[in-house]
Design a binder for these strands. Structure first.
Ligand SMILES: [Zn+2]
Ligand SMILES: [Zn+2]
Ligand SMILES: [Zn+2]
Ligand SMILES: [Zn+2]
Lengths: 162, 162
DNA sequence: AATCGATATGTTATCTTATAACAATATCGA
DNA sequence: TCGATATTGTTATAAGATAACATATCGATT
């Protein structure tokens, strides 16, 4: 039974935002992780929508807030968020999205619209790692898996695609 | 039942090579595609092993053969091979591998060793697109899917990993 | 064989993405 | 307060990818 974020349909996105931010705040407190100013701001920027942002997009956003930051600032914050499962890197488009199933996150699975860069995260698709059987058979130890499908969301299909 | 390339175990690799090259040659003839000198050379370079090569690795190989090529030469050849399913891009490591199941290729699935960059392609893991149900539910049209698992192959585990 | 459109290559320059390296600060427990 | 550890600031550069345009090649048509 499909179970994805509501990225492609109208929804109460402020609920997405507050839920994720609350979870991350709580997790950081619980695990002694430091959710510093820069890290929190980057997370908030990612949480503004379900659109994937490049590291330099994030950087530009920081800089329009008087922040005067260089690339490592953005990459470090993003690395922190990704390392702890609060955000994901979407490999196909070298971009980042906030995680909307934090705490339940193993192998993220995404539907990526190539036109509007909106990304829906799927919970159902990542319950079973499709490569697990192969890995076991060859004694390969999997550390991280990504499943990504690129295409067109419904509304971009209507607009003929890009 | 697992079914991957023998990338991580000893095998008769010349069979991998000749089979793939023969198939590509035949397909190009059948479909009127032009397997030019540069494209064939790049394919042969990729086929030398099951190790993923970056575009600039390929370029360097071309140049050590007197070829004097610039980046677009490599990227164009790689794009041609990827477009027709003769090679794949491994997104996680921005690198390319020859396809070892040409003609049966839909959504490629890979086991990627982060230490030696060897890549095993799985046929079984891609029979069913794990995101298909989600896509249908939200009327998202999938054009291309990649499934990638990174970790350590058996022999790199023995060496403690990197 | 000459012509012509389409495809592919050669070449230069530039853009985007990501990290190395090291100095300066801040944090937090002993 | 001290000192180890983690974080930030800053400069420079590495690595990956493409834009743009000139030239050459291919292959069908006359
Ligand atoms: Zn939302
Ligand atoms: Zn879209
Ligand atoms: Zn082989
Ligand atoms: Zn290995």
């Amino acid at each position: 039974m499909p179970d994805t974020t509501a990225a492609f349909i109208q929804h109460d996105h402020s609920a997405c935002q507050s839920k994720a931010l609350a979870y991350v705040t709580e997790q950081c407190a619980a695990k002694g992780l430091r959710l510093t100013e820069a890290r929190r701001r980057v997370l908030e920027i990612l949480l503004e929508s379900h659109t994937a942002l490049g590291a330099y997009d994030v950087l530009q956003r920081l800089n329009t807030e008087g922040y005067s930051a260089q690339p490592p600032i953005a990459y470090r914050a993003l690395d922190f968020l990704v390392e702890h499962g609060f955000a994901h890197k979407v490999e196909r488009i070298s971009a980042f999205v906030a995680c909307h199933f934090p705490g339940q996150c193993h192998a993220p699975a995404f539907l990526i619209c190539r036109s509007c860069r909106t990304v829906a995260e799927s919970r159902s698709a990542r319950q079973v790692n499709p490569l697990q059987a192969d890995a076991q058979a060859m004694k390969f130890s999997i550390e991280d898996t990504n499943v990504e499908a690129e295409g067109l969301c419904q509304s971009c299909q209507s607009e003929q695609g890009a």
